[in-house]
Simulated scan of single mutants.
Amino acid sequence: MLETKEILRAKTAEDVQAAIAEAGAAGRTLEVVGGGTKRRIGEVRADTVLSLEKLDRVVDYAPEELVLTVQPGVRLADLEELVAAHGQMLPFEPPGLAKTLGSKGRATIGGTVAANLSGPRRIRAGAARDHLLGFSGVTGRGEVFKAGGKVVKNVTGYDLSKVMAGSWGTLAVMTELTLKVLPAARTELTLLFFGLEDRKANEAMTIAMGSPAEVSAAAHLPNFAARCAPLKAEMAVTALRLEGFPASVQARAEALVGRLTGFGRVEALDARHSREFWADVREVAAFADDPRPLWRISVPPAAGWKAGHALSGDVLYDWAGGLVWLLSEEDPAQVRTAARALGGHAALYRGEGVAFAPLEGPLGALSGRVKAAFDPLGVLNPGRLG
């Protein structure tokens, strides 16, 4: 729990720099947290908590330029509400996952980007890292630095935004982030196919993604996931989302249904119900109340259904099969071995044990050199990545 350690509550970027510098000089370590929703992913073994919750200011928002600059403690829900008021959205549709991870906190934009978390629209819009234009931060050495900027074409040398997103706060602490936003779709519609077994559903999603329909989300909920709340369907559900102008969405939906005539009965969800459905998929709501360990497995989309069949437990497929959420008591080594055999990797998001398998070979060596350059003393989030 947060209260079991000394807590430093940073209110400025200068507070962050001072806390890291002092920790390094004293041989102490820091656990960096925002809303605290992802604290149970990985076992951080640190002396002190550095909280960024009070770094919660929107620094600059230029809707006409599609650019937003914020501090890391801004709550994700508040940020989504802000951009929605201007008819815009965070394109990578980030999940909060608080309920699914058993947290009472509220996700922040800093933690979301640090974990590189992306929702169903990732298959079309890209990941969180693709929308991080630049940031200011403090390395584990206590050095202040900036990377990127406020325009898309600003990268020379190493693209540190790509390095930082997904580093889980182990390299540096971001004190300000600049993000690209996009106009929100005028409407959306989701096609639902019923009763498909996993391999057939994967085939349908592959056809849809290869079509001109511009599918913005594709997921398959097998029987167990479909029966769980909140969907409570009687059989497996395969879902394909289309977004855009109403006439275009309708025309693309009709064409897509024609391409998928061999996949059985189809129904359409209107815009409101479609948004509700994908919010549940994004948050993995079907698995929120299940006590079993929860794995997040990333594999090539065509191999997604194989991951579900290679391991015991229950699954939910997102990203057209490329993201597999697995509820399982399976041995962790077996889960990771199965993921690697399919060209992917697995992370334990809920449950006891190592969350992330250590990188090996050339990739592990490169990761070690990056860590040594940013945080040679191991001040930031020790143990988070194994």
Rank of each mutant, 00 (worst) to 15 (best):
L196C: 06
M205W: 05
T178W: 06
V44I: 13
L269W: 05
L221Q: 10
S167P: 06
D290A: 07
V59N: 09
A236M: 08
A208K: 03
T170S: 09
L171W: 01
A25P: 00
A225W: 03
L90G: 02
Y317S: 11
L327E: 05
P332N: 02
R40K: 14
D375F: 01
A268H: 07
E360R: 11
D270E: 14
P293M: 00
A285M: 03
V32G: 06
E197K: 12
A172M: 09
L50R: 02
V354A: 13
P94G: 11
E276M: 14
F245E: 14
P358I: 04
H273W: 10
A213S: 11
E6H: 13
E330M: 07
D289L: 12
I109K: 04
V266I: 12
A85N: 09
F145K: 05
E176I: 09
L90S: 04
F356R: 00
E80N: 11
G140T: 08
A233H: 09
A107C: 12
R122Q: 09
G353R: 05
F356S: 02
A213Y: 01
F263C: 10
L177C: 03
A302F: 03
V70Q: 02
L79S: 07
E53N: 08
V152Q: 08
S136E: 15
V266Y: 04
A127E: 14
F374I: 10
R124A: 12
M164P: 01
I207E: 06
A247W: 11
V144G: 00
F135T: 07
G42I: 08
D159W: 02
V299A: 03
R121Q: 12
L359E: 15
S248M: 10
A271S: 15
L348P: 01
G264Y: 09
C228F: 00
L269Y: 06
E267S: 14
V151L: 06
A165E: 08
P382G: 13
V59L: 11
K104S: 13
V335M: 04
L171R: 01
V67E: 00
L160C: 04
S51W: 01
L101W: 00
W295S: 07
V266C: 13
A285L: 04
L30G: 06
A13G: 13
S51C: 04
A279S: 14
L380E: 05
G386E: 10
T4I: 11
V284C: 12
H309A: 15
L359A: 15
D56R: 05
L191T: 01
A184V: 05
R186M: 08
E31N: 11
K232D: 10
F92V: 11
N223R: 14
L55M: 12
F245V: 09
I123N: 02
I207Y: 00
G210C: 07
F263E: 12
R40L: 15
A233D: 04
D56M: 01
L101F: 04
T4Y: 07
V284E: 05
D375N: 08
S298Y: 06
K153W: 09
V151Q: 08
P230T: 05
A127G: 10
A279Q: 14
P382Y: 13
V74W: 00
D47S: 08
G157D: 08
A10Q: 06
R272D: 13
F194R: 12
G378S: 09
T48C: 05
G322F: 01
V173W: 01
A357C: 07
N154M: 04
W305H: 13
Y158V: 12
E14W: 01
